[in-house]
Design a binder for these strands. Structure first.
Lengths: 212, 212
DNA sequence: TTTATTATTACTTGTTGCGAGCAAGTAATA
DNA sequence: TATTACTTGCTCGCAACAAGTAATAATAAA
């Protein structure tokens, strides 16, 4: 049973109660982060906006950092699902192309949770926070995915075996982050974001140099 | 007279006093940001570590945000000077190549102020903070610089006139940000950072497609 | 030119309000 | 009645500001 279906019930299991409050607080936190940023977002307000007491977010998540970690994990999992759905069984350049298309769709659809996700992503940079590790982990998983697409493309004879697949994957992931930065810095300019994705696709195709 | 020369004096002008305390607090803030991150860095500690009272940083800068703005401005100006020194009169692909080399040198030399600068840069993302505007402004100046290098390369007949110089500049700046992200996420891996710069140089050269 | 006097600027200390984080409570479900 | 979900009460630390003290500067009398 999903969170929406729980709203109308007047009696819920304990598991349902936490699932509902988690979902509501996640929503509230996402809205607050998009509206006021991570610094001005308070645990107190997250609880209250979600319809609970001032103390619940503190009690549930412990610290602000852990709340943010929860958000990044939740949205991160969502994204990875969408991604594998989009890429399916593709390999090599086609997989990367599909991933770029999915990423573009994902960020231009403009849902606040994606925005909050990337705001937290960038804010995690620096020595503070356990959030850093979670983000680093997602970033690494992305990179490994890209590496495996390239490797499978090589196995397929579609791509040249001499390719530095690790370097190419790192470069690709760096470029994605750069594009996301541009998007967050200037969210209105949707056309440019699309264009940057297109350029990246062309560059990656060129760099991987299909053998046929 | 520079800040270092002021340290031994037992009588300073008011201007010299503020210059010295500014410099000392900037140093302290940079160290603290690199050591503990922006969140755990307190105005109180910045003042004390700099050798003043707990209240001076608050009094001088007003808010944490304005202290951070001061740091980004200071280091940002430094970087722009280094950059114009490195690029000199170059145009087109050569200018971009020189800028990439300078950037690589700048970040791999590992000074804490650059690190703090980029930590603040990424932390500025999101709706909060006046810092956001300062960073956006520096980012834009970078982009305009790159655009003008390309345009001069076109005027020179070195580059093809049909190039989308704005798109190319945005793509380039996005890529730089992506590389910086990788650096901050994994600062130890200096070789990879160098490699990413090299790849970017090659890709940009390719994308701009010299006419001769 | 020196030195006393006042004005200005740099810095410090006192204080308030607010949020994080924790402990001890109440209310819901099992 | 036992367990789990949630709330309320509380403490501590920091940001932010106000009101203080200490340094330099400007003026003027000697």
């Amino acid at each position: 049973m999903n969170a929406v279906a729980l709203i109308d019930k007047d009696r819920r299991t304990q598991a349902e109660r936490t699932a509902l409050s988690d979902a509501r607080m996640l929503d509230a936190a996402v809205e607050l982060i998009c509206a006021k940023g991570t610094i001005k977002t308070t645990l107190k307000e997250v609880g209250v906006v979600a319809g609970y007491s001032r103390g619940l977010a503190s009690h549930r998540f412990g610290t602000k950092d852990q709340l943010f970690t929860f958000i990044v994990r939740s949205v991160g999992e969502l994204w990875l699902k969408e991604l594998s759905l989009a890429v399916k069984e593709e390999v090599g350049v086609n997989a990367i192309g599909a991933a770029i298309d999915a990423h573009q769709a994902f960020i231009t659809q403009g849902a606040n949770n994606i925005r909050a996700f990337y705001i937290l992503w960038f804010n995690s940079i620096g020595p503070d926070r356990g959030l850093r590790e979670v983000v680093a982990n997602i970033h690494l998983r992305r990179q490994k995915d890209v590496e495996s697409w390239i490797q499978k493309g090589i196995a397929n004879k579609e791509l040249c075996a001499t390719i530095d697949y690790q370097g190419a994957a790192q470069n690709f992931c760096a470029a994605i982050i750069g594009i996301v930065y541009q998007w967050l810095a200037d969210p209105e300019n949707v056309e440019r974001i699309k264009e940057l994705h297109t350029i990246l696709k062309a560059q990656t195709t060129l760099a991987l140099g299909k053998t046929h």
